[in-house]
Simulated scan of single mutants.
Amino acid sequence: MSLLLHDKFLRCDIMKMKIHQEGQNILIILCIILLILNSLIHYFINIHYVSIPFLVISIIFFLLVLNFFRSPKRHYKGDIENSIVAPADGTIVAVEEVMENEYFHDKRIQVSIFMSIFNVHANWFPVNGTVTHVSHQNGRFMAAYLPKSSTENERSTVVIKTDKGEEILMRQIAGAMARRIVTYAEVGDKCHINEHMGFIKFGSRVDVFLPLGTEVLVKLNDKTTGNITQIARL
């Protein structure tokens, strides 16, 4: 049933797809470069078994990058007041109680979502509330699915206080291919589940740290759809 729902939302994404603002300039530049390269190959070499395969490879590569920067329009229809909604598309790679030592300095429930290069890389706010903390830490670029990436990779941290006073921490983590984390949240902002919080370019991970006692609704290897899948309930 969950797979059918996931496929349904993917089909809806295709119908409502637009290009994320973070990818517009990249796609324009990439298109120009590929057009120039293909024109040069066609003009100077003009051998079909060279120019045609290169053209096909160029189109496939451009479509892959286009797919990466898609920005589907989504609206969460569940109980917003008590829901914690997946901030990203991807696969659940961690659900565990951990010590969070960068902000809370106490135990929290960590839910981690790994995003492959084929996933949407826009990030949504997981809860409604007020942004109380934003910080950025430089670090390494290990594969984002590794547990150590949560504390050793380059990352941005955003803390949101809900209307009920609960603090939810969301961490954007760069991966082996990611070299830029974009965070739109600023301290004092009022935020909403249906709003974009940021974007991570080319493979990455998002960690959400929840208060102990939170009811977690996902398990390892579950697939999530950003701003659609409810991952926990306060």
Rank of each mutant, 00 (worst) to 15 (best):
M1Y: 11
M1F: 13
S2D: 15
L4R: 15
D7L: 14
L10V: 04
M15H: 13
G23K: 05
N25L: 10
I26Q: 03
I26N: 02
I26V: 08
L27P: 09
I29Y: 09
I33T: 09
L34V: 07
L35H: 03
L37K: 11
L40C: 10
I45N: 07
H48I: 11
V50K: 08
F54V: 12
L55S: 14
S58N: 05
S58M: 08
S58W: 05
F62I: 07
F62A: 08
R70Q: 14
S71E: 07
N82A: 02
P87H: 10
D89A: 09
V93C: 04
V98F: 00
V98P: 00
M99D: 08
E102L: 01
K107A: 06
I113V: 15
M115W: 14
S116H: 02
F118N: 13
N119K: 12
F125L: 02
V127G: 02
V127Y: 05
N128L: 05
T132D: 02
G139V: 05
F141D: 11
A143V: 09
A143W: 13
Y145K: 13
L146I: 02
L146W: 04
L146D: 05
S150D: 05
S150R: 08
E154W: 06
R155Y: 09
V158Y: 05
I160D: 00
K161T: 01
T162G: 03
D163R: 15
K164M: 04
K164S: 08
G175E: 04
G175I: 04
M177E: 14
R180V: 06
E186I: 11
G188N: 06
G188A: 11
D189W: 03
K190N: 12
H192G: 00
I193G: 02
I193F: 07
N194V: 00
H196D: 08
H196S: 08
I200V: 14
K201H: 12
F202I: 07
F202T: 04
G203V: 06
V206A: 06
V208K: 00
L210I: 00
P211K: 10
L212R: 15
G213E: 06
T214P: 01
E215G: 01
L217F: 04
V218Q: 00
K223L: 06
T224E: 07
T224H: 05
N227E: 09
T229K: 07
Q230E: 15
I231L: 06
